[in-house]
Design a protein around this nucleic acid. Sequence first.
DNA 1: ATTGACAGCCAAAACGTTTTGGATTAGAAT
DNA 2: ATTCTAATCCAAAACGTTTTGGCTGTCAAT
Lengths: 342, 342
Amino acid sequence: MAVTIKDIAERTGKSITTVSRALHDYDDVAPETKELVRRTALELGYEPNRLAQRLQKRRTETIGLILPTFGPRFSDPFFSEFLAGIGNTAAAAGYDLLVSTQAPGPAEIEAYRRKVQGHQVDGFIIVRTRRQDARIDYLRRAGVPFVAFGRTEGILDFPFVDEDGTLGMRLVADHLVALGWRRIACITPPMELMFAHYRLQGLREGLAAHNISLRPEDIIEGDLTQRGGFRDAGRLLDRSERPEAIAACNDLMALGAMSAAQSRGLVVGRDLAVTGFDDIPMAEHSHPPLTTVHQPIYEIGCMVTTMLLTLLAGRTPEQSQVLLQPRLVVRSSCGSSPLPTT
Amino acid sequence: MAVTIKDIAERTGKSITTVSRALHDYDDVAPETKELVRRTALELGYEPNRLAQRLQKRRTETIGLILPTFGPRFSDPFFSEFLAGIGNTAAAAGYDLLVSTQAPGPAEIEAYRRKVQGHQVDGFIIVRTRRQDARIDYLRRAGVPFVAFGRTEGILDFPFVDEDGTLGMRLVADHLVALGWRRIACITPPMELMFAHYRLQGLREGLAAHNISLRPEDIIEGDLTQRGGFRDAGRLLDRSERPEAIAACNDLMALGAMSAAQSRGLVVGRDLAVTGFDDIPMAEHSHPPLTTVHQPIYEIGCMVTTMLLTLLAGRTPEQSQVLLQPRLVVRSSCGSSPLPTT
DNA sequence: ATTGACAGCCAAAACGTTTTGGATTAGAAT
DNA sequence: ATTCTAATCCAAAACGTTTTGGCTGTCAAT
């Protein structure tokens, strides 16, 4: 039997109202009463029933995060850090984090709707934005507060945090070209993901600036996994004239690509250059260490959460559209490293 | 303004009671009335207020997961898969998942207490069990349903799922010895974690069976990270007489160890054997591919959740203490692979 | 003696449900 | 005509809070 505010009321001989107000430090309660109430609350091990509080306040103090799981599983070396960022920030503000899973598709926005209308969450954090993102359309239309990690196509009139993938891949292009690599292939994320678009575009622009063009047959749409990277790089490498460099759009695929190269007897950094994107912990200790673009994922988790929290508090974040400047991390997967390009 | 049961009552001209009972398919409601109520509910886009339901039912339909974040961050390549397992299983049963973060220490069980007493969760999933685990002591004492991924020291009178780490490392030992490696070192997890204990013990027993003893100076307590594995393996390898094999207690540290070896010009699989534990996706594509012990992490997530859900339904799981049999995945990080030992 | 100000307290309503314990009606059985 | 049954329905209480709009008493100022 949980102890309620009513128990405290009985014990102290005060009314429920007074107890509630004492606990919230209202100033129409006598200091001695406050003291008494607080002491008994502590003695009894009172803990407010959040459900009741939330029902009455009509706020859930909970933020939602729905993982777009493609297939039953969901693997993302990123994810635990991102979640830690969200979790810590939310906890510090007394907010809960409700996590669930839902594959993209028609049922998806229904899942969002239910959480909102069922008063389970006050707002959302959106991850893995897509070029046309029904989730964002819905939340915007419904007036539900949210912050996205990533952008979409079209007018960007919603709050987001993103890293400038275009710039990131331009740095990659510069780096590759500076080291003498010319024939460059790219393994992209699934193209419906918005960041796939930005990153591919960045590579294209970067190469174009050096009068190199990215040939259509050198672009392969990957699936973000290491296994996929292995497979796709294999296809690239088994062609009659293989590319000199593979720019993968994330580290996992880059690692897979390195693996594919090595299993064909190629020495990465000498016979083939490979680059990644994300700078996951793994990238530092691969062989050879992977040249990649850093993304401060924990901090991004903190940022989106902070923004969402100020939104929920009814205020406007000082910055509601954040585009982070990427940093190229030069290691040795593209050969002997010259001066870093930044 | 959200639509409530009251709105439906007004619209249909029925009472609140009847609407509620119609929606729950009670059989003291006329079929036509049910039909009418349901139609208007749909028309109005009614979605029950979970807070109100839960308050009234005194069940939160939510399971809690508190990540033991050491330091602000928390990195675990495992984790997203495990979480997907939990999330999918919970969602299928209509349960929510509340995730938060809390560093181990005195504040930790207070965090659990608050969630329970504040009626935020009905039960918990416990991860990274420790030899003496205050969380489990508390939950057991408080009579809160929970299922642990991992065991503890002492009497195991609580529900858990675990993989038999002792057996797993015995397989590793057999494998190493069979390939001719004799002087074997081990990098363990932090020793307060229970699985550290089991795995180390397994290695020790396995070697003992071949009359090989694990020397105290060849055991290093690591931190489960790749960077830590790199550092610790480095210490091992820089000694005057270096070990012939390094059995790391998880894949991340094993990968770090391989990296350390390679950066010292050693060829893994020839000059040094390395083994891991977990079989993370990465292990398959490392260079050389890592011999390790498989752990079906997604399935474990599903299992613990299923068990917790039956516990919450007031029933007893058919199996409440599950010890999974590990499987050695032989790849090439220990040299040319002979017949697998299982 | 009134009035006013203030400090301290509290009853009741509200949040949106579910459940309890009937109430009402119509028709069948006596 | 009365009683019984079955089929429908519903008012009110309850879950544990917060908030509204008071009330009561004391003291100081008039």
